[in-house]
Nucleic acid binder design. Sequence first.
DNA 1: GATAATGATAATCATTATC
DNA 2: GATAATGATTATCATTATC
Lengths: 206, 206
Amino acid sequence: MPMRALFPVPHPFRSPSADTGGASPAFLPVGHDHAQCRRDALDKAEEQCRQHGARLTDIRRKVLDILWDDHRPISAYDILHRLNAQSAIDSPHSKPAAPPVVYRALDFLITHGLAHKLTSLNAFIGSAHPGRQHGAQFFICRSCHTVAEVRSARIGQEISAAAAVLGFEVQAPVVEVEGLCPACRPAHSAPCAGHDSACACGQSEP
Amino acid sequence: MPMRALFPVPHPFRSPSADTGGASPAFLPVGHDHAQCRRDALDKAEEQCRQHGARLTDIRRKVLDILWDDHRPISAYDILHRLNAQSAIDSPHSKPAAPPVVYRALDFLITHGLAHKLTSLNAFIGSAHPGRQHGAQFFICRSCHTVAEVRSARIGQEISAAAAVLGFEVQAPVVEVEGLCPACRPAHSAPCAGHDSACACGQSEP
DNA sequence: GATAATGATAATCATTATC
DNA sequence: GATAATGATTATCATTATC
């Protein structure tokens, strides 16, 4: 169970996201205007915060900006490194920030629906649906590390249904699916056969 | 995003698990014969390993046994502590084991389908379905920390369906749902209303 | 002898507590 | 905001058991 490095690979695709009923395309090609993505995200964040009387401070904005460097998740430490690298340039004599700076900013962003934590990676990503904290599912490419944020009503419904049978009250569903995005996927690999139908899986068992 | 302590609370319920099509009860009352649970788990593990030519060594067996102390997840460090506490009794002059000992044992157990990692908790739990690694979903009680391991074919299917639309090849789906188990759930709380249908959620947004 | 398992040390990463 | 403690995980290397 070695945890792969987070960003060693060049990425042919990027991932905005899709707001979908049954699910719709969420992996977009590299060619898209990412500067626009970033600007949109920042603008919406300003808007969000204004509406809720929350303060998008300098640090919080910088962290959000770093999250939007691309559509791939980034670890708290990598955020810290980038933050410090930049501030070393901007103000050469300033002290480097410490981890709590980043975690506090991330807490704020997550609380306000501007970012998500991907628990299976210990990494963070900008929210494709600012303001909506719940009900998203993440599809994570093991090869290029691109993430698609999706909202499948049906997945949510089936989780609710299973919970209902258990008598369980759902508070925070985590759905993070690792696999291969269309670009990294070998031409046409066979779908899962051997396992039972509960297994949404492309792997063979040992 | 404070990470709550893992086991501070007494647990009125325990959770074997259910192998379900549409999902079936998986939270069992405290009264069940847990010694039997544990024996079954260990026996099946021996069986599994014999079949696959894998070696269930002393350390691995001990870790598995600790995982089966109850039906609640346990952190790698807590496993380490228990391991060392016991060995301090058994052989007073032995050196305490170091973290890699535990992680290696856990890797083995997970690889052979005898344990699961709950990524949202950084904790581990014995597998209710030895040998089957994929396709399980976990319902985690935030109050008593009991976990129900469930296999809902429908959840798996909907994840597959969403993946298909994306052109995504599923390799390792992670579904971990935090909430309240039947025992800890206040008499009858209202279901989620305000959010869209993708949100299997009992919470209000800020 | 080859392969796999263990022991020991330490580095790094992740997160939280405290002042 | 800064300092520091704790927890989680991985890397490395030497040693030992098992096939």
